[in-house]
Amino acid sequence: MNFMRSLLNKFSFLDKTSHIYKEISFLSPTYDHIFPKRVSVVARLSCSSNMLEGDTGCSIWPSSLFLSEFVLSYPKIFSTKCCFELGSGVGLVGICLNHVGASKVILTDGDPCTLRNMKENMELNNLCIEQEDSRALKESKNKVECKYLSWEEVSESDLWGYQPDVVLGADIIYDPVCVPHLVRVLSMLLRRDGRQGGTNGTSVDEFVYETEAPVAYIATVVRNPETFDCFATAAADTGLSVLNITSSTAPSRFLPYMLSYDRSSVQLLRISLLS
């Protein structure tokens, strides 16, 4: 009771009638050769109490749960990598990325209220959200940044400071109006060119950049086939490869107690630049 009271006092800016606090516990389903170490992650989140009232960015969606399970199921994909998430919402995926040892986690959202709630959630989970050049961030094992990012307004120069190895997104393919902007941002983030800075001669770093191209993983529920087709077409026109890996790379079930969570409705896409 004292814990919850202190939380309410700390986050007094929230409308207590529209936000609640939840704990999402990810637990290994079995102890076997696949998971030599038990997965046990508890994410404490401030989120919307009603996702249908317009506060969608502060809601916990099935795709976010699915993508979080994917991160925990395949930690080697994300460990020691710079991970950049689009439309991060409450920040659940970022908490899981930090848990598996991502070298840097950049969470972004284009809604100021959602971004503010996300930052508070990172603090609630004792994750560092200092600026990139701060000493605290460089010395902390919790390397999480929360950034404002408008898909419509962001330019390529705005992203020059980031060279993500992995781009992520959950339920970000939802509006045909936003699809061209989303595809443009994905294309910029997945392209490794002069943004990493000029060097003289060929170095090991340059070789790594050339051979290990960035990849994106997007979890989505196809509520409107026309919108998804619009995304697939725009991606192909922009030179992006979109593969559905839901069956071949299904995550483990870390949320068996969450009966309302429908995993079957979520699809997992792997996106990369066509060579």
Rank of each mutant, 00 (worst) to 15 (best):
L243C: 04
S88Q: 04
L14M: 08
P29S: 07
A213C: 08
Q131M: 11
A219L: 11
E85H: 05
F35W: 11
S140P: 05
S48N: 10
T202L: 12
I24Q: 02
F3G: 12
L159S: 09
L127G: 04
V93G: 09
L243Q: 06
L65C: 03
Q163C: 13
T202A: 06
E139G: 05
D32N: 12
I172M: 11
P256Y: 00
S6F: 08
C113Y: 12
L124S: 04
M258H: 06
V221Q: 13
Y174E: 15
S79K: 14
E120N: 12
L124E: 02
N121E: 06
P112Y: 13
S103K: 10
K10Y: 11
T246R: 14
V42N: 03
K81C: 13
S155A: 07
G197W: 09
P176M: 03
C47R: 02
V221R: 15
V144H: 10
M188F: 12
G161M: 10
E206N: 08
R253I: 00
M188I: 14
Y257M: 00
V144M: 06
R195L: 14
Y31E: 04
D111S: 10
G87D: 03
Y217T: 15
C82F: 02
F13K: 08
Q196V: 12
S40R: 03
V208A: 05
V204I: 12
P251N: 00
F84E: 00
S49K: 01
R135D: 14
C47W: 02
P75S: 06
N200L: 04
E123V: 09
P251C: 00
D158T: 00
N117P: 00
E69C: 08
V166E: 04
V221K: 15
L65N: 01
V183F: 13
A43S: 04
K119T: 06
R195C: 13
I271E: 09
V100R: 03
T211R: 08
R184E: 01
G57Y: 02
A250F: 07
M1R: 10
S187N: 14
G91P: 11
E23P: 02
G169Y: 02
T220Q: 14
D32I: 10
L240H: 06
L259A: 07
Y257S: 00
S68H: 04
L97A: 06
D229T: 14
S155E: 01
S49N: 06
L268W: 14
F231G: 07
S247N: 13
V105Q: 09
N9P: 01
V242S: 03
S103F: 10
L67D: 01
L240W: 06
C82E: 15
